[in-house]
Write a protein that binds this DNA or RNA. Structure first.
Lengths: 199, 199
DNA sequence: GACTTCGGAATACATCTGTATCTTATCCGC
DNA sequence: GCGGATAAGATACAGATGTATTCCGAAGTC
């Protein structure tokens, strides 16, 4: 009978190689051959798992979304409400090489989504999901008296998501350890308390 | 003697064609030939003005920065302080097709800067310039009593820039005229007053 | 009016691209 | 151990790409 391989596992390995290529050399450097080389297999093997380059890119795109969700599941959920929220937000920032690499990929894919309608739809779905869960989270904070109630939770969720996008974009181009980097982290705390704390 | 042509003007025309290609079909669709077709000239002519594709991309990159500065110069500078600031911020958002196209380009270039060191340096310079002018502007607001003084102006400038990046990213993927779009504009006002107004 | 000089176009060429096809190697059930 | 199914690799191929080179035409000066 045939040689047995874990097909899903293999697809993930190849997609992760693709993400490494983007993180190292940009999305322009992505080709079937470059990804195969990064994965340590032949270009022909890649074709066995992804019929087209577009399939491969799409699969990797959804993969990045799952990564962030997985990290969020591991975040410590106890302690003061705003601290918990802050920890979730920090998970989305490029504070180490791993997250920096992921963010480069997300940026490349976001730019791609700006001109490809089906990619845009997928990105919109991700935003909607983030909006729903963030709103629910903030409503809980309102109920427990940790979050201001003079503004609807969905507006506050907008703010949190915007802050995440804005700070990650800015910090992606600010060397970690630099004064500007530290200042931005401080500023994030300032924004969170000023915008969300009861007044 | 030779045929006379405005060389700088011609270079700008070609670069603008490049920007249109990106806005319509993404940076992956950029090739010497596609840009030449968009500009209505031959590929050979493009080579006369830009020795390499990289030169062309670089020139267009700096061009986008200048566009935003030019729009800012035309912003009405009278009226309440926060309104003036708000008008400047709105200029960076994708509120019409023109600005939406520019933002797609900026996103593509930002992603590119994540892996090309010299592009990153140029982008950092732009951020630094924005930081300096925004800080000066906010300091003036502090002096006139229109901006809170319990936080240094440079922190507030961080916030304004982060909000600009965050909202533009989010609105790029939110159809204009949709409820979410309107809500985001409202939320921006909320953030500006809550973060900047004297308390 | 011929000549020179450069803009613009066309062509050439080596390389890279995605994808299709073909060949070899590997593993499992019998 | 061996046959057959399937993974992995190699090869093929048409098209696109960046860039170098060549050719043509127009414009202004002598």
């Amino acid at each position: 009978m045939p040689k047995i391989v874990n097909r899903d596992e293999r697809r993930r390995e190849i997609a992760e190689a693709l993400l490494r290529v983007i993180a190292n050399a940009g999305i322009e450097a992505v080709s079937v051959r470059s990804v195969a080389a990064e994965a340590g297999i032949s270009a022909g093997a890649v074709q066995k798992y992804f019929a087209t380059k577009e399939d491969l890119l799409r699969f990797a795109f959804t993969l990045t979304g799952e990564y962030l969700l997985q990290r969020w599941e591991r975040v410590e959920g106890s302690g003061p409400f705003l601290d918990v929220l802050r920890r979730h937000l920090l998970e989305a920032l490029p504070l180490d090489e791993q997250r920096r690499a992921e963010l480069i990929v997300v940026f490349a894919f976001t730019a791609r989504a700006a001109t490809l309608p089906d990619w845009a739809a997928q990105l919109r779905d991700s935003y909607d999901a983030a909006q729903v869960t963030t709103t629910a989270f903030l409503e809980a904070g309102q109920d427990s008296g940790d979050v201001r109630t003079d503004v609807p939770a969905d507006r506050l969720a907008d703010l949190v998501i915007v802050l995440a996008d804005g700070f990650s974009a800015r910090m992606l181009h600010t060397p970690p350890g630099s004064p500007a980097h530290e200042r931005l982290l401080d500023t994030l705390d300032l924004a969170l308390t000023d915008l969300l704390a009861p007044r």
